Amino acid sequence: MPSPFLLFVNSKPTAVSDEVWKKWYTTEHIPDIVSSRTSTRACLFEEDYTSPISPKEKHERRYLALYQTDFEEALQSSNYQKCATTSEMLAKNGGSKEVFGNGEFDSRYYGLVQTYDPNKLGEAVPPPYILTVEMSPFDEEDFNSWYKEEHLDLLAKVPGYRRTLRFKHTVPNEKMNLTTPPSYLAIHELDSTEHLGGKEIKASMATDWSKKIMEDSTVFVGRVWKLIGSQGAVRRMSLSEGKFLD
């Protein structure tokens, strides 16, 4: 079972290169977060603009770290206080020794509201790709019923679909957030992105109920991400090298 809370951190490097940023995340920061037990599973993703539904305009913050956690406010936990706030790696590659002087971070807290796992995958090897969908519905009860009674069953027909975790934004913190977060986040796990423009996903959005939900939602943000590395409840993996790291 996934942990009850999620720390969502969207970022961009401002003082070091993308390669150094990814290396710091996957070899220093994520292992530190997991070993401190701040997070039970942590993954770093990079936005994938090759999928059929990706926007042409690139977002500035193209990296997404997802931390499953048992803490509603993970960054305020005593576990997190044990984590390093400095990095020699960043300092030696043109950046600041102080971690938060090297990038721009947009951090959000979410609580798990639904796990949809038709294939009973559980916390298996993390997905190579995810589709995140952020929405702020007008009618939350209708919105949740749509997901549970129609939408996820249709999404499950998309080739390569694995499972979905749904979250609701919990703790407002203006100091953490660069933007006002939409109220709901869905993370759709995928084996590939080639069918995201196919007939199955189009059918999932073509129902009368789907059209109503889309019209009523004040915010809709969909982004596709490719896994860079992970650690935690599963073995740590590097897609760039095509092998497990431990």
Rank of each mutant, 00 (worst) to 15 (best):
M1H: 11
P2E: 08
S11L: 02
V20I: 15
P31A: 05
S35Y: 03
T40L: 09
R41G: 09
F45W: 14
E47V: 15
D48F: 07
D48P: 04
Y49P: 06
P52K: 08
S54N: 07
S54W: 08
R61H: 12
R61T: 04
L66W: 01
Y67P: 02
F71S: 02
E73I: 12
A74W: 05
L75Q: 12
S77Y: 01
S78P: 13
K82V: 01
A84K: 03
A84E: 12
A84H: 11
E98D: 15
Y109D: 12
Y110S: 11
Y110Q: 10
Y116F: 15
N119K: 08
G122K: 03
E123H: 03
V133R: 02
P137L: 03
P137G: 04
F138D: 15
E141Y: 09
E150M: 04
L155Q: 06
V158Y: 04
T164D: 04
R166K: 15
H169S: 08
T170D: 04
T170Q: 09
P172D: 12
N173Y: 14
P182T: 04
H188F: 00
D191H: 14
G198A: 04
K202R: 15
A206V: 00
D208Y: 00
G229N: 09
S238I: 01
F244L: 13
D246V: 00
